[in-house]
Amino acid sequence: MSDFIIGVTGGVASGKSVVTRRFEELGVVVADADVAARAAVAPGSAGLAEVVAAFGVEVLAADGGLDRAAMRKRAFGDEAARRRLEAIIHPRVRIALHEACLAAPGPYAIAAIPLLTEGGGREAYPWLARILVVDVPVAVQRARLMARDGVDAGLAERMIAAQATRSQRLAVADDVLVNDGALDALDGPIAALDRCYRALAAVVDRS
């Protein structure tokens, strides 16, 4: 059971998934907000029913599940729609992440939360012991997003602008991991963070 929980966040295309996979390779359990968000609006769920009530049946795919591409396009093009969607999903995600981390074996667990800053930061997640921000320059985000998702520059800019700014994310950070270079450059910093978190968790456990 892990009650020492690290929140990992970062902007879109910052490389959060790469970072959390490295922690998993070190034996750390990672609870992923994206996975929890998909579960929150799974077919037949109360969350999906609430989304349909808010946005209409046009956000459903042919199989009855959420049409994620249509929903994303709508949410990123309309701030009020994005906030309405987040108000449905975020509370469910917070509960699922906390439960998963508490149930995890090991000295500490990680909650991977892309929208941690946007979702209320420390006030919304008072159970986080520390927050690790995966940081990249905006130009790197834009280039990665266009290459990864095949979107044009305009949509990439809107997706970045819809999130917290780089400075807002850094303002909530206890730890910062810069991920603007080669992936193998992450190994040393992640190993150091893992040692730090294990030591801090041990101190908390003894207190």
Score class of each variant (00 low, 15 high):
residue 24 E to A: 15
residue 103 A to I: 11
residue 45 S to M: 09
residue 46 A to R: 15
residue 99 E to R: 15
residue 27 G to S: 11
residue 32 D to A: 11
residue 58 E to H: 15
residue 96 A to I: 10
residue 59 V to D: 08
residue 97 L to M: 03
residue 54 A to C: 12
residue 28 V to G: 00
residue 91 P to T: 08
residue 20 T to K: 08
residue 70 A to W: 03
residue 102 L to I: 04
residue 57 V to H: 13
residue 47 G to N: 10
residue 79 E to L: 13
residue 69 A to G: 13
residue 95 I to S: 08
residue 55 F to Y: 10
residue 62 A to Y: 02
residue 46 A to L: 12
residue 93 V to C: 05
residue 69 A to M: 08
residue 92 R to I: 06
residue 104 A to L: 00
residue 31 A to N: 13
residue 37 A to G: 10
residue 104 A to M: 00
residue 54 A to N: 06
residue 92 R to W: 03
residue 8 V to P: 10
residue 82 R to K: 15
residue 14 S to I: 07
residue 87 A to S: 15
residue 78 D to W: 04
residue 45 S to R: 13
residue 18 V to A: 14
residue 92 R to G: 10
residue 13 A to I: 03
residue 32 D to R: 09
residue 86 E to L: 06
residue 64 G to S: 11
residue 22 R to N: 05
residue 51 V to K: 06
residue 34 D to G: 07
residue 57 V to K: 14
residue 28 V to W: 00
residue 77 G to E: 13
residue 68 R to Q: 09
residue 82 R to A: 02
residue 59 V to R: 01
residue 73 K to C: 03
residue 66 L to K: 02
residue 88 I to G: 04
residue 86 E to H: 05
residue 58 E to C: 01
residue 95 I to Q: 09
residue 10 G to Q: 07
residue 27 G to A: 06
residue 46 A to V: 13
residue 87 A to W: 07
residue 70 A to C: 06
residue 88 I to Y: 04
residue 15 G to P: 11
residue 90 H to E: 09
residue 31 A to D: 10
residue 107 P to M: 10
residue 61 A to F: 04
residue 31 A to T: 13
residue 39 A to W: 03
residue 60 L to W: 07
residue 56 G to S: 12
residue 90 H to L: 08
residue 64 G to N: 11
residue 38 R to L: 04
residue 76 F to V: 15
residue 72 R to V: 07
residue 59 V to M: 05
residue 30 V to K: 02
residue 12 V to F: 01
residue 34 D to R: 11
residue 60 L to A: 13
residue 94 R to Y: 01
residue 93 V to S: 08
residue 98 H to L: 15
residue 46 A to K: 14
residue 49 A to N: 03
residue 93 V to K: 05
residue 33 A to Y: 10
residue 66 L to H: 02
residue 105 P to A: 11
residue 105 P to G: 05
residue 54 A to I: 08
residue 96 A to K: 10
residue 58 E to T: 14
residue 102 L to K: 09
residue 30 V to F: 00
residue 55 F to K: 11
residue 41 V to N: 05
residue 73 K to Y: 00
residue 50 E to K: 14
residue 45 S to P: 14
residue 44 G to R: 14
residue 11 G to F: 05
residue 61 A to Y: 03
residue 107 P to L: 15
residue 93 V to W: 01
residue 45 S to G: 09
residue 13 A to E: 03
residue 20 T to Q: 05
residue 89 I to W: 01
residue 70 A to D: 02
residue 94 R to L: 09
residue 36 A to Y: 03
residue 92 R to Q: 09
residue 14 S to F: 07
residue 58 E to V: 07
residue 94 R to H: 12
residue 62 A to R: 14
residue 22 R to I: 08
residue 85 L to G: 00
residue 74 R to G: 14
residue 30 V to P: 01
residue 41 V to P: 07
residue 106 G to W: 02
residue 48 L to E: 09
residue 65 G to K: 13
residue 81 A to L: 06
residue 103 A to E: 12
residue 34 D to P: 12
residue 53 A to K: 14
